[in-house]
Design a binder for these strands. Structure first.
Lengths: 107, 107
DNA sequence: ATAATTCATAGCCAACAGGTTATGAATTCG
DNA sequence: CGAATTCATAACCTGTTGGCTATGAATTAT
């Protein structure tokens, strides 16, 4: 059962990758060089992380001359938001059921 | 910069672990044996996953005799929800700024 | 034309993650 | 007490991951 959002969860699991995505969300489009300058890892490492983010749909790239501009695609977070919502939803549902039960016991 | 929610993201990265958490959210408290029955992996594997989930605060355990009951703690998802909110927030802010700029250019 | 810049890919390596079987501790049943 | 059950831990193996350096392709600057 390989969900499509599997890539999403896995992509966000790495702190370096999350930091890259955060920067793109905050500051908008950036070149690889700009991202590398603050990433704390080598340029090839950054490129690989960006490839992973792209595979998960979290970023898109815009080649222009010899540089590549990357930008965030926060829409890609939707499955994650859905999932957390479902989990919280299940929780509420079970909580409501308990409340119901307690109410009935009260009578 | 090792964030506390690092464990959280990493814990949710594994599909087997997510499935365990989902089951606990849906069906409530479960023993290790019950979880193992549907996990598709061995009992020790399940125990290890549960330990990881517990380390991330996603589940709590309740030892009772020779069995251990696990249950979900969806509150632990809060940092994740916060984070996605911030990312979307940054996005909106930048979007609004762009809209603003376009409006001003329009005049 | 030559040199420099920007990025992606290849190749390598150490560390980690997820799986297994084996085992042991604690509890419960006969 | 002895046997069986339930779970966690240990020991081990393998594939993956994240990092690096080296390199090459493509573009831009001199």
């Amino acid at each position: 059962m390989l969900s499509a959002s599997d890539d999403l969860f896995r992509a966000l699991a790495d702190p370096t990758r999350r930091a890259l995505f955060e920067r793109l969300c905050q500051d908008g489009e950036q070149t690889v060089a700009a991202l590398t300058a603050r990433a704390g890892v080598s340029q090839p490492a950054v490129s690989k992380h960006l490839a992973a983010l792209k595979a998960a749909g979290l970023v898109s790239d815009r080649p222009e001359g010899r540089q590549t501009h990357y930008s965030a695609r926060p829409q890609a977070l939707a499955p994650l938001i859905d999932w957390t919502g479902r989990m919280a939803g299940f929780w509420e549902a079970r909580f409501d059921a308990l409340e119901d039960l307690l109410n009935r016991m009260d009578q």
